[in-house]
């Protein structure tokens, strides 16, 4: 009970500070994913085209994924120094695998009959990509971004050790303070909350982007039409 009271007290006293860190934390994760998307989606498309490259590229991304976050950040720090950029770059590296993998899978899984149809109708290679492959794999690519975002929100917590700020700052302060349970929770709960919300929102977008609309949607439309 005491802890809960302390927690509420902490939030009322430091509300704007928590919010500021929350926002900062989110931005770092989002930038990491965004840059990874800019690089990863074209790579995914490329290795779907040139199938032979896929093994190499995906193994490489897999290796990056296995490096422990603290080790990766430490090594990057040696090269890039302290600061937000180092952390964002690490988050970028962690996001690559799910994004490349999902883009690759999404595009490879487009029905070959559709590709043949498109080609035989006189689409150029770029048109096939734009009008057939991308729209049909969009929800799978989105699922990759969703995984990446959830991973980066977790990893970004460690960013505090490298001078990047974020909700990790609050947690770290709690661990250093005597009897800091409430402070640790004040950092940990918003982090968990952010991950859950990100997952739910991205999942919703992913469903919206499904190429074949679910039966439910159409019956709703029909009902609207009859009313």
């Amino acid at each position: 009970m005491e802890v809960l009271k302390d927690l509420i007290y902490y939030f009322t006293e430091n509300g704007s500070y928590v919010w500021e860190q929350f926002f900062r934390h989110f931005l770092m994760s989002a930038y990491g994913v965004l840059f990874a998307a800019i690089v990863g989606i074209p790579i995914g498309i490329l290795i779907a085209r040139y199938h032979k490259l896929s093994g190499w590229v995906i193994s490489l991304a897999n290796i990056i994924q296995t490096i422990p976050a603290l080790a990766m950040l430490a090594v990057l720090m040696l090269v890039m120094g302290l600061g937000t950029n180092t952390v964002v770059f690490a988050l970028f590296l962690y996001s690559l695998l799910p994004i490349i993998k999902n883009t690759y899978t999404g595009i490879r899984n487009v029905d070959s009959a559709l590709l043949e149809s498109g080609k035989a109708m006189g689409m150029t290679k770029f048109q096939v990509l734009r009008m057939v492959e991308l729209p049909l794999s969009l929800s799978v690519i989105m699922a990759g971004l969703r995984t990446a975002l959830v991973i980066t929100i977790g990893v970004a917590t460690i960013g505090t050790f490298f001078g990047a700020g974020g909700l990790g700052d609050i947690i770290l302060r709690g661990t250093n303070a005597e009897d800091g349970t409430a402070i640790i929770l004040a950092g940990a709960i918003p982090t968990a909350l952010m991950a859950v919300i990100a997952d739910v929102v991205m999942g919703w977008i992913e469903r919206k982007l499904l190429p074949v609309k679910k039966k439910k949607g159409t019956t709703e439309e029909l009902e609207k039409a009859t009313v």
Binding site: A113, S117, G118, A120, G122, M131, P211, V212
Partner: peptide, 20 residues
């Protein structure tokens, strides 16, 4: 080839309508 294909209709067994 692209121009040629636009002048020739094509129907396949799997139908191949674009679901989206």
């Amino acid at each position: 080839p692209v121009k040629l294909r636009r002048e020739i209709g094509y129907v396949i067994q799997q139908i191949g309508l674009f679901p989206h």
